[in-house]
Design a protein around this nucleic acid. Structure first.
Lengths: 368, 368
DNA sequence: GCACTTTGGCAACAGCGTTGCGAAAGTGGA
DNA sequence: TCCACTTTCGCAACGCTGTTGCCAAAGTGC
């Protein structure tokens, strides 16, 4: 019931839409309850629906194979509550992470658990045919393990792109991909639904689904510097799905030139500091830009990831946290500073998040 | 049906919720159609509900006095469509703009049309009692003109505050307001619902309701520099309703000190340039920070307002647009640069937006 | 004047969550 | 061992939603 559905403005809600919304909501609560499960009455409390409505919804979900009973809780003086859990095998998705020099693909179940993985070297600049062949081969191999429960394939890769239409804009450093309709090309060859997104957005989605609540920014420092934003539990992609251009935020007017053409971008300052071996300065620069972002959007959390960060996490986490703490102290914040943490997921986080591009909609994420 | 309702996570939807959502949606389309009105079949297309459902909804709205028939369209070969319109007098709200030296209050009807206005000098530092007295007096006077159709009073003022609880944090320059529960104090004395928000958020809401579609940033340059963000048609207030801290974005590492304690904030750079009489440099600095924001969030539009800007709009609009155009060109954007315009509404925009804090929820804005 | 098109209300309907109620399945005291 | 009590949860009836089938109303155009 939000105001941003589809392209034609907010839309009306009829009974089938209401039904699928509530079913997805219950399914999401089953998922986030994990292996411990959750009782019908708890579901009723959380959804603010009546227990009887929850009973009907869970009965349908059990009939369709998405949920199952899983034991009982201890009695509190009456009939003990029946515990329900998600059936993870009811759905799978393949997540593909296309990096500059490597293809990493995972097969994940509804729970997000990785049940299959493949890694092969890859040259993103080797041309569309070669890359498409590799994706079709690896995704196909993994997907066969899921049978008919395979929902589709999610692909995450660097650089600006059109998430809605699945068309690449500029994969930084590989101009030959400019304008390539990756989603449709892959969907035609795989015969499956395909969703394409930026690597940073996929990683952020994966973190949100994995349990990071509220609003946060995932900052990725590797070959370049980018961000994935989650605002109110939803990945913010912006009007033309180009949000997250964090690296080319100018924080030093008339500073050193950046390959992008601007002067004083965070990315060039941060990477230059790294080349000098000055990790402290790189972290400070990153912290200042993170503080700009945090003040502008009032987020709950900053998560750091990417090869450069995972190589030496502590100085970055502390350096960024110090800047945020100093700003919060100076501005007399009523609440503590925004916490900074290392992103979980590691090197496989982007591929797992890519799988979530297909899995998350099952739980009502990002579909209204 | 979004995932950010209330405090306890996303909630289920039952039939009453579905009904009020669809009714609000139809009411919103009636409002945005303006005096020309809109036909039932057009409403059905826009809402994606069936014509019969729209007929039932509009019949209820007419019964309740919110909608009325207003003539017919020309025939296209069959029975001509009946045109429906909003009845603006069915609801009113008072909007109060508390500025440092002035109180401005308006009475607006459902259409947003101002049907009453009052302006009195005010010293925000004169103490809570004096300010509350003034608000109660002016809002009461205006509100009596609306009778029982008065929905409540919206109050907009500068400085960080807690929008959800209606408690002020720090009204910049007036520490005596720190922690003051403005909403509850006013609601008790007025006997009406009261909503409190930052002046920039109110102005942004007013612009969104007035017809600015999609996502945009409203940048306000007056005594200070702040922003109101509208993302996907909704005012973005952030986790602790503190979003929009645009003025203390650092764009010059180790730059000149700002009263806030940081160095190189846009606000201090921009205001210093204005004091030197260098409007061009002020506009360039504003433009760089606006470009940072536009790249990060991928917004559709930048709107400029505030006393300093309305005093000399052209150099600012052009200066900011130039920076955005230069960045878009250098980054090889596939679409044109983000347009920059002067915000409509002028000096009364904040007060009108404050009234919309009560009116907009009638049309389903920001309530899920 | 008649055939046709288009609008929009009436009535019956399927399906949603809700309410009323009772069976099932425990606890705990006599 | 029995019985009163508590708590869970499904069945059945219900109210209300949007949907479908149908037809009267109100125009156009030959």
């Amino acid at each position: 019931m939000n105001r941003t559905n589809g392209g034609g403005g907010p839309t009306g809600v009829n009974l089938p839409a209401l039904r699928s919304h509530n079913a997805a909501l219950v399914l999401d609560l089953l998922r986030s309850a994990g292996p411990d499960g959750i009782s019908r009455l708890e579901l009723a409390e959380r959804t603010r629906l009546t227990p009887q409505a929850v009973s009907k919804i869970t009965a349908r979900l059990r009939e369709e194979g998405f949920a199952a009973e899983a034991g009982h809780r201890a009695s509190t003086g009456g009939k003990p509550r029946t515990v329900l859990r998600l059936v993870p095998e009811a759905g799978h998705a393949v997540g593909v992470h296309l990096d500059r020099d490597e293809l990493r693909a995972v097969l994940a179940d509804l729970d997000g658990t990785v049940v299959g993985e493949r890694r092969v070297p890859l040259d993103l600049g080797a041309g569309a045919e070669a890359v498409l062949d590799a994706v079709v081969r690896e995704a196909g191999t993994l997907g066969r393990g899921a049978g008919t429960s395979l929902l589709g394939v999610g692909v995450a890769l660097p650089g600006p792109l059109d998430h809605i239409h699945g068309v690449l804009h500029r994969v930084t450093g590989f101009p030959e991909w400019d304008g390539f309709p990756l989603r449709d090309a892959l969907a035609a060859r795989l015969g499956l639904p395909v969703v394409v997104d930026k690597d940073t957005n996929a990683a952020a989605l994966g973190l949100a689904v994995a349990g990071e609540r509220g609003s946060f920014a995932y900052l990725h420092l590797g070959t370049g510097l980018g961000a994935g934003l989650v605002l109110g539990g939803t990945v913010h992609r912006g009007a033309r799905t180009g949000a997250g251009e964090f690296g080319h935020q100018v924080i030093q007017l008339d500073g050193p030139p950046c390959p992008c053409g601007n002067r004083g971008c965070v990315e060039v300052l941060c990477l230059a500091a790294m080349e000098r071996g000055d990790v402290g300065e790189a972290a400070r620069v990153l912290g200042e830009s993170a503080a700009n972002l945090a003040g502008l959007l009032d987020i709950d959390l900053v998560l750091l990831g990417g090869r450069t960060i995972t190589a030496a996490p502590e100085p970055f986490v502390h350096g960024v946290a110090d800047v945020l703490a100093a700003r919060a102290r100076r501005e007399g914040a009523h609440e503590g500073p925004v916490p900074v943490r290392l992103a979980t997921g590691g090197a496989r986080g982007v591929a797992e998040g890519a799988a979530q591009l297909l899995l998350a909609p099952v739980f009502g994420w990002g579909v209204g």
